[in-house]
Amino acid sequence: MMECAGSNKNVPSRKQNRVDILKQFQSRFFATSRLVSFPWTVLENDLELSKSSDVILEILKQTCLHALCRKFPPSPRYRKCFISELIRRVESAGCEPLDELYDALAEVVAAQDVTEGYRTYLLPRGDGVSLLENVALISEGTTGLVTWEAALYLAEWALDHPQTFAGRKVLELGSGAGLTGVVVCHSCGPSSYIFSDCHQSVLQRLRDNLSINGLLNNKTKTTRTEVSVQELDWTDMTEERLKEFSVEVVIAADVVYDPDVVVVLVQFLSKILKCSRGRVPAEVLICSTVRNPHTYAGFKHSLSDAGIGHRVMSGAVNHVFEYNRESEIELVQLYACQ
């Protein structure tokens, strides 16, 4: 009897462990995370204990065979690598082969290789933000066709601080693929949101991604937020046009990456803060992945020279999305010095 009791005691923990494995595999698969980031060791332990491929089939159903994958599939190359790794783990554990695995592999091998694929970033409530992104980090002369870490961090910060955006007019600089703005529009309730960029390919991709997520198409619109997409060249933007926007919050992610761009950016930020004088000043938040400390330090020096102060928004954010957190990411709030 004692042996049975001890055996039953382990059942809930093992079941919970299986649930956790499935969640991790699903969220990382749809975000097309690096394969090394998946919990392979935990999976191997499960296979060794059960000597069954059941967990692999469950993973397959939650990833490649899931309805979301049919609608918004990651690139064929990514799915091929993922399925090949699952097959390798099954064979390594000596489990019985799964026909479904080889059928799924045959399907992606037959698919035409493409330069783009979908990434879906799952939200805590279970739904997700699906974006069409390029496979290459840099393509068509721009970095704006993929989602970068600072955009994901800023979206997580927004989920933790919805009051910053609720009922307010928001302008986003360098919106790229649109991740941060889609999250803010769906979860934080701004009255209006202006997505902006200067590259034509990025603007078209941005419109497509906003339509996918129910923000532009009136027939499928899922939020009361007034949404628009603007071509915005920082060098040509006048104070008069900025005043017409009458925004209350300005945000940007991963726009500090080149010394030449920093000069133009700081000049533009000066105009934004200048237009805020005489009324409630706009809240300006810039989120950056610090890839080059020298360039980032130059950005802060340029802010100071332009009479712009900054405060670092410290404090951890809740981890919602799957991305590489090894790089330093900093969020700063800007203000005009008196």
Rank of each mutant, 00 (worst) to 15 (best):
G128N: 01
S130K: 00
S191L: 07
V263Q: 14
Q333M: 08
C188M: 08
R291E: 01
S52F: 06
T147R: 05
A306S: 14
L269F: 01
E328Y: 07
L269T: 00
L98V: 10
G178N: 07
V109W: 06
R14E: 13
V263Y: 12
R88F: 14
W148E: 00
A104Q: 12
S276K: 06
S246V: 04
D127T: 09
A282H: 01
N134S: 11
C188Y: 06
S75Y: 03
I194H: 06
L159N: 01
V135A: 09
D99K: 15
V263H: 14
K23G: 12
L122Y: 13
A336I: 11
G315S: 00
S50M: 09
N17I: 04
Y121I: 06
A155D: 02
D258F: 00
L101S: 01
P97Q: 13
E239P: 04
C198K: 07
L43F: 11
Y121E: 06
K61F: 05
L285S: 04
E140N: 13
T115W: 10
L22N: 03
H66T: 06
K271G: 03
E330K: 12
G189R: 14
V108D: 02
L159E: 04
L273K: 00
R277K: 12
M1E: 15
R125H: 07
V109Y: 09
G167H: 07
V227G: 07
Y335R: 03
A136Q: 10
L57I: 03
T142L: 00
L152F: 06
A297M: 10
H310S: 14
A136V: 04
H186K: 15
F268L: 04
E248N: 05
L216E: 01
V42D: 14
R119W: 09
T295Y: 08
V202N: 02
G278S: 04
E85K: 15
L68E: 15
T235F: 09
H199S: 04
G94Q: 06
G128W: 01
Y118F: 15
L60K: 05
G174D: 11
S192A: 09
T142Q: 00
F195M: 09
R14K: 10
S37I: 09
E3L: 07
D113S: 13
R279A: 14
V135N: 08
V249P: 05
D103M: 13
S187W: 10
R119G: 08
S302Y: 05
G174Y: 09
S288E: 02
A151P: 00
Q26I: 02
S53Y: 03
C337T: 09
K219M: 04
V247A: 09
A5I: 10
V170S: 10
E48V: 12
K9I: 10
F321Y: 10
R205H: 12
F268V: 04
S276A: 11
L303P: 00
V262Y: 09
S196L: 02
R79M: 15
I194P: 00
T142F: 00
D103N: 13
T225H: 12
L35E: 02
E248Y: 11
A155C: 06
G167P: 07
V129D: 01
N324T: 09
C81V: 05
